[in-house]
Amino acid sequence: MSTLDRAGEVGPTTVPPLVEDEAVTPPAPAASRSRRPRGLAARVFVTVALVVMTVAFVYPFVWLISASLKPRSDVFDNRLIPETLTFDNYVEVWNAAPMGAWLLNTAFVTVMATLTVTLSSALVAWGFARYRFRGRNVLFGLVLASMMIPGAATMIPTYLIWDSLGMVGTLTPLWAGNLFGTAFYIFLLRQFFLGLPPELFDAAEMDGAGHWKVFWHIALPLTRPALVVVALFEFQAAWTDLMRGLIYLRDREDFTVPRGLKSMLDQFGFGGEWHWELVVAASVIATLPMIVVFFIGQKQIIQGVASTGTKG
């Protein structure tokens, strides 16, 4: 499990509920949102620094896309605009590797991982947020504590479990663990549920709504903004994961895109040096969907990340 790989490691002390249409953080009464520097020199410095850093952060993408459109001999010429523009690399990648199958496999794993973890984590979070029961705090403490356990400490027996179920070599181990919820998401969603007024649910129960109905028809719809954040985090985590692909996938046709990209590096020798141009094109194919997802869910992703670090 990893949510944008950092968020999943450790839980923050508390997380303020994510509220739709609210800015990154609700400003404290006296806090200003932005601090324009006063002097001209300071302004010039800030602007220049921002532009330089932006170029540094964006240029690797530009380089990658540009290189993917160059013939093999030009990949390392570091020109912004390719001298000879060609789409051959993309065609060639499709021939050299089962890229279509890889994309389908990754899409399947990502969708399954996202759907299952969002629903299961919401169920568990609701159980912890809505009800009081004996041992609740101890169990929730275990949820938090389990975030500290390094993946390596469970990796081998988990593999043995999937092996004994005959699932090694299939895509199932890449997502099915998500059926049981993930500590970090449970934590995030519980915080959100706790921010909702309990009277709302009491009233529905008075009117005879069952536990499931209250959850499914009242609580869940109200939680949509937080569910979207969880889904986006998991979508990114599942799409980009390499480790599970390395452990569980055997046949080339069954690979995910990250696993496939790694296999191309191996196949083309010493980090892909016999066919840089194909490796570069495949890297673009692996990355592009995440860029699209970011621009679709930008507001929720930024908000979600900001909330993981704030101590309310």
Partner: peptide, 8 residues
């Protein structure tokens, strides 16, 4: 860049 797959 945080969205980029670590393999890439």
């Amino acid at each position: 860049p945080k969205m980029t797959p670590p393999v890439a």
